[in-house]
Each structure stands twice: as C-alpha cells, then as structure tokens.
C-alpha cells in the first residue's frame, strides 16, 4: 500500500517535471525564434570571410617568415618553386593529381554553395493557420504585414511602422520596424506595441504564440541633434 502510494507520488512528480521542462524548452524556442527574426543572420558569411582572411594572413605570414630566413637561412635562398618539391610531386604524380582534382572539385562545390547562400533572398513566408486537408487556411505575408503595420502606426508615439513576415514556412515570425516620434516615451510605447499590436495579431490569427521582433529607431530628420 505504502509502496504503491510512493510510486504514485514519484510518478506524478516525474510527470509534472517533464511537462515543466517541455514548457520551458517551448518558451526558450519561441524566444529564440523571435531573436532570429530581429535581423537576417550573416553569421556564416562573417565566419567564412573571417576564415578566408585568417587563412590568407597565416599563409602569407609563413611566407614572410621563410623569406626573412627565420625558418632557416638555406631555405630562404632556395627558389619559391623548390626543385625538391617538384621532384617529390613528379615521383608521386598519380596521387598528387587525384588529390588536386578532388580538392579543386570540393573547392568549386563549396564556393558555389557559399555563393548561393550569400545571394539567397530572405524569405517572406505566408502564415498557414490550418493545414488540414480541405480546410487549408493561409494568410498571405503581405496581408499580415499591412494589418500589423496599421495597428502599429495607431500606437501613440509611433511615427511610422513597417511589418513583414520572416523565417521559414514552418516557423514564420513577424518583424516590425518602428520609427518613433520625437519625444516618444519608450516606457509606454514598448509595452503598448506588445499589448495592442502583437497581442491583437496573435488573437486575430488565433495563434498562441507568434514569434515577433521589434526594431525601434528614431526618425532621421534631425539626425545631427540626436548625437
């Protein structure tokens, strides 16, 4: 009897712990999605540019070290295309050629993939509210953006607003660019944007969560005075 109750208690606590963890991970996932919506990510572009620069820098530093004789004065006096290296390559011609061809193909494929990634435009997904067959309901990205924009521009302190859908079709998010009026009170505008604009968007779409990112700026008219 007592054993049964103990096992029951442990089961209950285990169950609630699990759902708590699920909730927490869901919240952090939504936060992550809204953070990702803040701006298009250039992380890979930056990393690749940094890596290419570091590679070039490192290789030319080694070349400089050789040139100044820090890696041996005899080596510094030898030609750049060293006959020893050429002879070694000639002795291993087949593996060297295969390696060169494979490296060339990999470089080409990697470069093309990188290029496609750099040039790909940022998506404007439509919002699929209902995916059930026969009941499909889709809100076009443009319609959503217009509705949210009108709501945002009605908030006191907002001069202009622009909204767009970002992310993927599976995980759409909303990005709102807001230009504040001169002398707008951020302490009021910021909660207002959530309570009146985003909450209304969620409500009218019937969504529990809609990851959203708001980017606030002041107008550019009097830029010099602002600094």
């Amino acid at each position: 009897m007592s054993r049964a109750s103990v096992s029951k208690v442990s089961k209950v606590s285990g169950g609630s712990g699990g759902s708590d963890a699920a909730e927490v991970s869901e919240v952090s996932e939504v936060s992550k999605a809204s953070e990702k919506a803040l701006a298009r990510s250039y992380r890979s572009e930056r990393a690749l540019t940094f890596g290419a620069g570091a590679l070039v820098l490192g290789a030319s530093c080694v070349a400089l070290a050789v040139g100044f004789g820090w890696l041996g004065t005899v080596r510094a006096r030898r030609p750049v295309l060293d006959p020893i290296a050429v002879d070694w390559l000639a002795a291993h011609a087949v593996p060297a050629r295969v390696a060169a061809i494979v490296a060339g193909l990999l470089l080409c494929a990697g470069g093309l993939g990188w290029l496609a990634r750099s040039l790909r435009p940022e998506g404007r997904p439509d919002l699929r509210l209902d995916r059930a067959v026969g009941h499909e309901l889709t809100v076009a990205a443009g319609a959503l953006a217009d509705a949210v924009r009108a709501d945002a521009e009605a908030v006191d302190g907002v001069a202009r607003a622009r909204a767009r859908a970002v992310g993927s079709a599976e995980r759409p998010a909303l990005r709102l660019d807001v230009t504040l009026r001169d002398g707008a009170d951020l302490r009021r505008v910021w909660p207002d944007l959530d309570e009146r604009v985003l909450a209304r968007a969620r409500e009218s779409l019937g969504l529990e969560v809609l990851p959203a990112a708001v980017r606030l700026d002041t107008g550019t008219a009097n830029r010099r005075r602002g600094r």
């Binding site: 309570e195 830029r223 600094r227």
Partner: peptide
C-alpha cells in the same frame, strides 16, 4: 522581452537621442 516570443532592439542613435 515584454512577453516570451517578443524581442526588440533599439538603435544606438535612438538611445542617444
């Protein structure tokens, strides 16, 4: 974040202003 799933940024210029 005013609510989970809502993130926001301010430009440095706007903060300075």
């Amino acid at each position: 974040e005013p609510a989970p799933g809502v993130s926001g940024t301010l430009t440095p210029r706007a903060l300075a202003r």
